Simulated scan of single mutants.
Amino acid sequence: MRIDTLPAGAGLCEPQLDLCFTRAPSGATYLSRQRAGYPYHVGRLLTAGGSGEDARVIVQSSSGGLFEDDDVGQHVVATAGARARVETAAATIVHSMTRGFAHSRVRIEAQEDARLDWLPHPSILFPGARLTSRIDAVLHPGARILLADSYTSHDPAEQGTPFGALDAGIAVRDANGRLLARDRFRLDGASARPLGGVSAQFAAHGGLMVLTLDNEEAKAAVGSLEHATVDAFYAGASLLPGGCGAFLRVLAPDSLSLRTALDRAIDAVRAVSV
């Protein structure tokens, strides 16, 4: 497979962020392709875990968030044997809107025996904000992907004005393009206050997918996720359909509490995974 061009069927047209991680003969992971256009900026390559083999990148945005009619795309691939982690420098503000939507599209791929972590901070929906979010994950044999996706809402004027709408979806496919699992939800701000729609104590909503085709690893991930969030606010973990891993869902009173719960879950999964 060529890694110097965006694969066919990626669902993205010239994404503003395009990263490819490759494993060197030494075992270290490096960026073999890096293209970051507005609004994205990629900091220098860091090492994760002190091993010198895992690459860590922090993505920054110079736009101040997502605005009405924005259409942003990100594409990240870890080639065979690579070990990489992509994070964001801060939460993404989805600003107030008068009519349209902001659109975010992400495609991540972990090839054979690769490890790829996609761990952005939450998206914060301001009053009237409308966001569609699509994440497509491609999982090859022996690979593992940690995929976090979380949202909260905020009214700076404290007038109780809700966000507009949130339409979020995650699709997981194998290397042949076969759909293994899909998570999809749509929320209307006026009827879903607080975000998550369970009770007034929950204002933040997030999920963590541990994507793997190894059933034993998936079962171990469920156990570690349950243990890590046993005293979390409102959380549950289970196996994903299609034999593609485990899934944790968390509702929390605020974004800080949500982030703390997800961080604990991520650390727990890493402790039982190779």
Rank of each mutant, 00 (worst) to 15 (best):
residue 1 M to W: 00
residue 4 D to E: 14
residue 10 A to R: 02
residue 17 L to E: 08
residue 19 L to C: 07
residue 24 A to T: 10
residue 24 A to Y: 01
residue 24 A to G: 01
residue 25 P to D: 09
residue 26 S to C: 07
residue 28 A to D: 11
residue 28 A to Q: 13
residue 28 A to K: 06
residue 33 R to M: 07
residue 45 L to Q: 12
residue 46 L to H: 11
residue 46 L to E: 13
residue 48 A to S: 12
residue 51 S to F: 00
residue 55 A to H: 07
residue 55 A to I: 04
residue 61 S to H: 04
residue 63 S to W: 00
residue 63 S to V: 01
residue 73 G to R: 01
residue 74 Q to H: 00
residue 78 A to H: 03
residue 79 T to Y: 00
residue 81 G to V: 07
residue 85 R to C: 14
residue 90 A to Q: 06
residue 92 T to M: 03
residue 92 T to Q: 05
residue 95 H to F: 00
residue 95 H to I: 03
residue 95 H to W: 02
residue 100 G to E: 12
residue 101 F to D: 14
residue 104 S to A: 15
residue 108 I to E: 01
residue 110 A to L: 06
residue 121 H to F: 14
residue 131 L to T: 05
residue 132 T to Q: 09
residue 135 I to P: 03
residue 139 L to D: 04
residue 152 T to R: 00
residue 154 H to T: 04
residue 155 D to W: 04
residue 159 Q to G: 11
residue 164 G to E: 07
residue 165 A to K: 05
residue 165 A to Y: 01
residue 175 A to T: 07
residue 176 N to M: 12
residue 178 R to C: 14
residue 184 R to Y: 11
residue 184 R to D: 09
residue 187 L to D: 07
residue 188 D to G: 13
residue 188 D to W: 00
residue 194 P to M: 03
residue 196 G to K: 07
residue 199 S to N: 14
residue 200 A to W: 00
residue 210 V to E: 02
residue 211 L to P: 04
residue 212 T to Q: 05
residue 213 L to S: 14
residue 214 D to P: 06
residue 214 D to V: 11
residue 215 N to M: 12
residue 217 E to Y: 01
residue 217 E to V: 10
residue 221 A to R: 09
residue 226 E to S: 12
residue 226 E to H: 11
residue 228 A to D: 08
residue 229 T to R: 02
residue 230 V to C: 10
residue 231 D to C: 08
residue 233 F to G: 11
residue 233 F to R: 06
residue 234 Y to R: 14
residue 234 Y to P: 01
residue 235 A to C: 13
residue 237 A to V: 02
residue 240 L to W: 10
residue 241 P to K: 10
residue 243 G to I: 08
residue 245 G to S: 05
residue 246 A to V: 02
residue 247 F to S: 15
residue 254 D to M: 01
residue 254 D to Q: 06
residue 267 D to L: 11
residue 274 V to N: 13
